[in-house]
Design a protein around this nucleic acid. Structure first.
Lengths: 109, 109
DNA sequence: CGCAGACATAACCGGCAGAATATTTATGCT
DNA sequence: AGCATAAATATTCTGCCGGTTATGTCTGCG
């Protein structure tokens, strides 16, 4: 599963958000989501691992997960192409004007 | 379907990439993907519409699709939190050094 | 050694996403 | 009006994803 698909799941995004602040053990992460069973979280973590978004290290019998934000680089690279598109008024403003024109045109044709 | 899920599909990303350059009719977009049937493309376009990533206008019997890049803003907002994490050497360089240290430590303990 | 804790994997299930075929709607053309 | 074209929707089928229960593996500890 690629980074795009990995991040398309809300739970996994929240996991990454937790890891952004600090490392956490699998147990801590699981505990943060009461709606998800232990194996469920384990599978989410596996997906995040295999798509390169987190790294693990063993610490006794715990697994400590940490963010590996470079994994998001491909995603960011793709989006960066579009960024600035909506920051310049080039399409949002244009769309707004189009809508106004169309609305006006429908009122008095 | 939210923007994250919409963009998690490779075909839909390619469609957006095509629309980045210019507007296209549904037919043009379909023709660009021989592996996808006409209704298939129509459904992809529907998803992109409903997640706010494209807008349509009717032009005769054609539907002209255009990028609505503001739809990507939530996605970009989420990622931007992580950007700079791998740009500052704060984790990639650190991880690299950690790895070197660990490797060295294992060679002569 | 043997037990308990932490986590991963296996097996299974329900639902939904994606693809194909068939049909419908709307528009242009003669 | 009648036909062809463009594109959307309906229907069906299949495969994968997320969740659960059950089980396995490894580690720390008495």
């Amino acid at each position: 599963m690629d980074a795009f698909a990995a991040v398309s799941d809300p739970t996994r995004r929240l996991v990454l958000d937790l890891l952004y602040r600090r490392e956490r053990t699998a147990g801590e992460l699981g505990g943060a989501f009461p709606s998800v069973s232990q194996p469920g979280m384990s599978r989410h973590l596996r997906v995040l691992r295999e798509s390169g978004l987190v790294r693990v290290r063993k610490e006794g019998r715990r697994r400590v997960y940490a963010l590996r934000s470079e994994g998001l680089a491909p995603l960011d690279a793709w989006i960066s192409k579009y960024r600035g598109f909506w920051e310049t008024e080039l399409d949002s403003l244009e769309a707004h004007l189009d809508a106004r024109q169309r609305a006006a045109a429908e009122k008095r044709p």
